[in-house]
């Protein structure tokens, strides 16, 4: 079997697991970190799908800027999501 397909399956699964964790996590800071890990997995997926242009824009935005923006916002509101 093609190594690319195996790696694609692996990184997609990692992305899926961390998406689930980000959704159910009540501590918003942890949720942002899970979301960033999911983005890192997707960076690998996009690279394997041969989209280096998207990788270059996705990496700083989804791993650097977006979590930072959300963390700043959490800093201005509440850290834990209430029921």
């Amino acid at each position: 079997m093609d190594v690319t397909l195996i790696l694609l399956a692996l990184f997609s699964t990692v992305g899926l697991v961390f998406t689930y964790l980000a959704v159910v996590e009540k501590d918003l800071v942890k949720a942002v970190i899970f979301s960033a890990i999911q983005s890192t997995a997707y960076v690998a997926v996009l690279y394997l799908l041969r989209a280096p242009d998207i990788v270059l824009v996705y990496l700083p935005v989804a791993v650097g800027l977006y979590p930072a923006a959300i963390l700043f916002l959490i800093g201005k509101t509440e850290k834990v999501e209430e029921k």
Partner: peptide, 29 residues
């Protein structure tokens, strides 16, 4: 380099801009 080589290699203005913008987060945090 991503901006200046945007017409030769993957990347371009937006990619380079987003990469540089990470510095603003680093400085602030």
């Amino acid at each position: 380099s991503v901006a200046a080589h945007g017409h030769l290699t993957p990347g371009g203005g937006f990619q380079a801009g987003a990469a540089l913008a990470v510095i603003s987060v680093l400085l602030a945090v």
